[in-house]
Design a binder for these strands. Sequence first.
DNA 1: TACAAATTTGCAATTTTGTTGCAAATATTA
DNA 2: TAATATTTGCAACAAAATTGCAAATTTGTA
Lengths: 138, 138
Amino acid sequence: MSTATKEILKKNNMSVTDSRLQILDLFYETEGALAHADIEKQTSDKIDRVTIYRTLQTFEEKGIVHTIPTADNSVKYALCKEHCEEGHHHDNHVHFVCEHCGKTTCLDDVLVPEVKLPRGFEPHQSNMVVNGLCKECK
Amino acid sequence: MSTATKEILKKNNMSVTDSRLQILDLFYETEGALAHADIEKQTSDKIDRVTIYRTLQTFEEKGIVHTIPTADNSVKYALCKEHCEEGHHHDNHVHFVCEHCGKTTCLDDVLVPEVKLPRGFEPHQSNMVVNGLCKECK
DNA sequence: TACAAATTTGCAATTTTGTTGCAAATATTA
DNA sequence: TAATATTTGCAACAAAATTGCAAATTTGTA
């Protein structure tokens, strides 16, 4: 329901609008990540494509969602589970993309392992995406 | 020079054409990965956009280059250093993207570590991208 | 509650990115 | 060198994303 999502918007100093509520609700109802096209299909036709782009961008800036780098280079978004503040993401968990159904899952409990980089490289953030088959598709 | 790259094309059963030589030379001259736009800028205007798309696709199929999934979801290509055969890539190394200069580097010696997935997930391939500052930009 | 200010939205136009079909040009093979 | 096969460039198209701006909605305040 919109009550909880409403609070999230307020907490982040965002105006509470119908589009934002619908899109945020959708994220909470959905298991796995969402692409722009998914959101367009699964929300009211009243919401313009452009609004969806802008909403996703705002959500990302506010630390509500994060983007996932997938192997096929399609942009996907998922809810930030915790610790994300404005302008600074902590989505240091592994993402899984199913090769069969295409669903992208945040493995919140699997942290991206540290790696030793060659001399001179200063790491700030790591991303890891695993492709394979999910439970349902095996 | 084109002599070496020419051999690579021949070895992979590809016709030796000017476009392919130019693009492959560019990869050998360039440290770090290249996006389609980079190639378009840095080759002769005689080479058509479409040809670049098709050449990159062919190179990938032949195992000459591989794609890199970056956090900003732009498609980048880098030379496969070794072991890549037609239709089967072994680019299981970590990629580094500099936040300052934007350069993408293959860390050929840093292998993507294995992670333990939750029950039910069957991994096939892993990708890891580290963001931060490179030697030059620190 | 009502009003002014600030923010957000939708539309239209445009840009960027990627794809396809096909004839002309180029490369390969014999 | 001629015949065959492959590749290229062009044009048209399709999809994805961005921008400016006026209208609509939301917010803060009286």
